[in-house]
Design a protein around this nucleic acid. Sequence first.
DNA 1: AAAATATGTCAATATAGCTGACATAACCCG
DNA 2: CGGGTTATGTCAGCTATATTGACATATTTT
Lengths: 186, 186
Amino acid sequence: MNSASAKALRSGGDPPARDFAPESDDAIFDMMELFFFAYRDFVKDADRLLEKYKFGRAHHRVLHFVDRRPGLAIAALLDILKITKQSLNRVLKQLLDGGFVEAREGANDRRQRLLYTSPEGAALARELARLQSARFVRVLSGLSPDARRSATEFLLAMIDQDERASVRAHLLVAAAAPSAGEESPP
Amino acid sequence: MNSASAKALRSGGDPPARDFAPESDDAIFDMMELFFFAYRDFVKDADRLLEKYKFGRAHHRVLHFVDRRPGLAIAALLDILKITKQSLNRVLKQLLDGGFVEAREGANDRRQRLLYTSPEGAALARELARLQSARFVRVLSGLSPDARRSATEFLLAMIDQDERASVRAHLLVAAAAPSAGEESPP
DNA sequence: AAAATATGTCAATATAGCTGACATAACCCG
DNA sequence: CGGGTTATGTCAGCTATATTGACATATTTT
C-alpha cells in the first residue's frame, strides 16, 4: 500500500534521502511547485473581467476554444475540456442565452450543433486572451528565442503522450482556421 | 468596452486578423493552450492514488506543502494556497483526523498550530510527488541542461512579480529544511 | 427497420471554493 | 492590568463546477 521508494522516511529526524534521481530530485520538486504557482497566477488574470459578465472559468474555457476553433462540434469540445456533456451544458447554455456563442446545424450531419462565437463573444474571448497573453508577452520577451523554444518544447512534452498528437492538430487547426466550418474526419 | 485590437472580427467569414503583435501572437496563443493542456494532464497524475484515500486535490495540496515545509503555520499555508481558512479547514480536519498531518502548538507563539506530516502522511505525500514528478523526470531528461534552465526560468517568470520573492523563499526553505522544527522569524 | 450516434435533459450528489458572523485563546502594548 | 490585535476555529448558507445514471429525440448508418 505504501510508497515503494520511501526508504529512509523522516520518521525519526534524519535528512530526507534524496537519492533516487541522478542529479536533481530537488530541482524537480521545485519545478513542480513553480508549475503550480505559475498556473495559479495565470488563470487568475482573466477573473476580474469575467466577473463583470457573471461568468466563471468554465465559461472562459468554452468561449476560448470556440473562438479558436470556429465550427467546433459539441463532442470535440467535450474531448478538449475532458468534462461531461452535463457539465458543459450549463455553461454553454448561458453563453448561448447571452448571445456570446451561436450554434448552427451541421451541414453534413444535421444532428451536430456547430459552435461559433458571435461578434460579442469573439470580442470577449479576445479581450480575455489579451489579458492572459500579457503575462506571456512579458515573460517571453525576456527570453531568448532559444529559451522560448525550450519553454514551448517543455510544455508540449508535459502533455500526455497520447494527447499530444491531437493537441498539435488542434494548434494547427486553430492557426490555419480561416473561419472554417466542417470537421475533419474522426 | 471592446477589444482594442479586434478590428476585422470574423463576423462574416474573413480570416481573423492576426496582426497586432510583432511576430507571434499565434505563438503566444499556442503557448497559452499548451500551458492549459499541460496543467490539465499534470494534476491528473495523482488522482487515482488520492481516490484510494478518498482525498481530493485540495488534500493533496495541503499535504504536499506541509510535507515540504514542516512546521508550517496555518496562516502561511493559507497564503500559499490563496484560499480562505474556512475552505482549508474542512480538508485539513480530514487530514488531521486521518492521522496524515499533525498540529503542534507553536513554541514561541502558543496560538499557532504548526503543521507536520505524520510518517504516513509523509509517505503518502512523497508517493504522490513521485507520481507527478515522473512526468517531470521524463520531460526534463529529454531536455538539455540549458533547456531545463530555460523552462525553469520561464515558470518562475510566469509567477506574479510580487509573489516571486516569497515563492523563491519557499523553495529555499523547503530545500534547506532538514526535518526542521521551528519557524524562522516573520 | 434496426442500430448507432450526437445531443439534450432531469435528478441527485460531491468537491471546493466563497462570505459573513461570531468565539476563544494568546500575544502585545501602554 | 486591561484593551486591542492576532491566530485560529466554527457555524451557516451560498455558488460554481464537476460527477453518475437514466432517459428522450433526432438523424445517420447499416
